[in-house]
Write a protein that binds this DNA or RNA. Structure first.
Lengths: 193, 193
DNA sequence: GTCTATAGTGGGATAGAC
DNA sequence: GTCTATCCCACTATAGAC
């Protein structure tokens, strides 16, 4: 991937993402991506060293988008957790295949721009106030989303009650118990506010 | 798969599972499974209609094992949630590739023995007291486990604090606040004690 | 030098004839 | 059970066009 910013490499990544988003991971083949660009599969290797580099580039784009979306969602809100969850769900729902590629399997951290992963996680870390709480929150949110995407809950009823229960539980984590009416605005504030 | 109980079909499934557990999903090829049995790949098709049927059979075996393990773990314990989490983590840790196959991607429900999915979920449903709470709990537990398996949390520190935070939050869900310790202990405790 | 093509390797799932 | 054959895949080597 000579110059990922301009040139042809960029086109390859964009075509790859389009294929992935539209037709899913099985459709993401070098032949198919090449076809989108009107060239042959082997020609792609002049721009991208191998298929997994193409996938990594799609992942990086996804993280950059997600990070920006999460930052924007949280800004100016007083209920950071709720705002984050809404934005997270929206991103995963809008780009399910990209979301899965981003979150499933090992992360090629060596090939990610430094700080990108942390930047993406920052809004949730801030909302939850500590790394262990943020991890627990991420596990819940990711678990819900991924089980939802895979239709792992019985299809006939809504998952909203489960989201509500889980979010309520997470909120209790960041708010010591004996605090009554804790809804959006009375929050005891997370450490960073 | 003529007679999954006896016959050769059973051998195929067992060989498939062995390959999957030992060398992961990429190693689970028809050639490799055939090799384990000392035959050629096309011969497998006398016993298994296609590869995905083999995968489904491995999934079914996994669910049956998991259901039995969860039932046994919970029996006689008064802290059902803690006991379930311990057993769930143990199963996923012992069989990571099978666990992923079981939980990732769509479930071929039409080919599962009726009631098996519900049976597997029953101990957690019982521990949490309602379907939405059980779903929230499953999302957290599955999310934690899968992120852990994929090394998605920074590798340098333990995930135990996150497990503890999440379990504490779940416990609060099933114990309305002003209800003093109706379990063994009132403190949010780690899954292992 | 840059972008492409053809041709070929080796590995997959799977159908069909024996 | 076998073998052959088809088709899809990632990837490589090499070489021609601009």
């Amino acid at each position: 991937m000579a110059d990922p910013q301009t040139s042809r490499a960029r086109d390859v990544v964009i075509a790859g993402r389009r294929v992935l988003e539209q037709d899913g991971p099985d459709a993401l083949t070098m032949r198919r991506v090449a076809g989108e660009l009107g060239i042959r599969a082997p020609s792609l290797y002049k721009h991208v060293p191998h298929k997994s580099a193409l996938e990594t580039a799609i992942i990086v784009d996804g993280f950059e988008e997600a990070a920006a979306a999460f930052e924007a969602a949280v800004e100016g809100e007083d209920d950071h957790l709720a705002a984050f969850v809404v934005a997270y769900r929206a991103f995963a729902t809008a780009h399910p295949h990209v979301y899965r590629l981003m979150t499933q399997g090992p992360l090629p951290r060596e090939h990610l721009p430094p700080g990108l992963e942390a930047r993406t996680a920052a809004p949730l870390l801030h909302a939850m106030g500590s790394a262990p709480r943020a991890r627990a929150a991420w596990a819940f949110i990711h678990g819900m989303k991924v089980l939802e995407l895979d239709a792992r809950f019985p299809a006939d009823d809504s998952t909203e009650p489960a989201w509500r229960e889980g979010i309520a539980a997470l909120r209790a984590l960041s708010q010591p118990s004996d605090r009554p009416g804790h809804l959006r605005r009375t929050t005891p504030s997370s450490p960073g506010d």
